[in-house]
């Protein structure tokens, strides 16, 4: 579904991404982990059309999206849940959700919007309770759910999430990730960027490790979890001998 080859993205003089290649196949959950500044957010923003690449190719469903306007990328079926939620704070929850469905309205699928709204409330009951509240008054976790639900209203084929767990309590993160699983089960493909490497890899099928704008490791989520360097750098050290055989 998504195929990136040798992507190069610059911020001024600095290269945020140097020849990054990765792919996401239909129905997968792929996690991108790495330290701050590694380039993960830049990657997602480039795919979403917010950033113009300096080189390389981004193929989404066979179309080259490098340089396409964001609205076109969303219309093609790729939605980004951005870092920091970015809800429309001065507008109520319901309007946030309806705005997420903009592309659906343009496609003339009003009936689907109704159904999707119901589905959003099913996934995140709290949002229904707060439908009339201004989005800016929601808690961090609720805002994250709103941001996710909003992106899903467009019925995207690929959902990209940028650090959804940031600043959220572990219990909330658990709910959020459960929602991601549900979303995948319902047919979407997910590309997840996370600082919380352990949670991200447990959720994902495959993963990539990004360091200073380059991919240093690729493999199944399990292989990444078992990779010592990953354990040392991102999973809080190596497991003790006693826990060696255990699944982390």
């Amino acid at each position: 579904m998504l195929r990136i080859r040798n992507l190069e993205v610059a911020y001024g003089r600095r290269l945020a991404l140097r020849r990054v290649s990765l792919h996401v196949d239909q129905g997968e959950i792929v996690s991108l982990i790495g330290a701050n500044g590694a380039g993960k957010t830049t990657l997602l923003r480039t795919v979403a059309g917010l950033v113009r690449p300096a080189g390389g190719q981004v193929l989404f469903r066979g179309r080259d999206t490098a340089g396409l306007a964001t609205e076109r990328v969303v219309a093609l079926g790729c939605s980004l849940v951005p870092e920091g939620r970015q809800v429309f704070a001065t507008m109520p929850v319901l309007e946030n959700l309806l705005l997420g469905a903009t592309v659906q309205y343009r496609r003339g699928r009003r009936a689907e919007v109704e159904a999707d709204l119901a589905r959003a409330y099913r996934l995140f009951p709290r949002l229904e309770q707060r439908a009339g509240q201004l989005a800016g008054t929601l808690s961090g976790g609720e805002q994250q759910m709103l941001a996710m639900a909003r992106a899903l209203m467009a019925r995207p084929a690929l959902v990209m999430l940028d650090e959804p767990s940031m600043g959220l309590a572990p219990l909330v993160v658990k709910d959020l990730f459960a929602a991601i699983r549900t979303v995948r089960a319902e047919g979407a493909t997910v590309l997840l960027v996370e600082q919380n490497a352990r949670a991200a890899l447990r959720l994902a099928d495959r993963g990539y490790v990004l360091e200073t704008g380059r991919v240093v490791l690729e493999g199944s989520a399990r292989a990444l979890l078992d990779n010592r360097d990953v354990q040392r750098a991102y999973l809080g050290g190596e497991p003790s001998a006693a826990r060696e055989g255990e699944r982390p």
Partner: peptide
């Protein structure tokens, strides 16, 4: 109106509006 709502969204957060597929330009 929907367009009015879209403009308000654009005003609230232009990038988020673009991410919703709004033709912000």
């Amino acid at each position: 109106t929907r367009t009015g709502r879209e403009m308000r969204a654009c005003a609230a957060n232009r990038e988020a509006a673009a991410l919703c597929g709004l033709a912000t330009r």
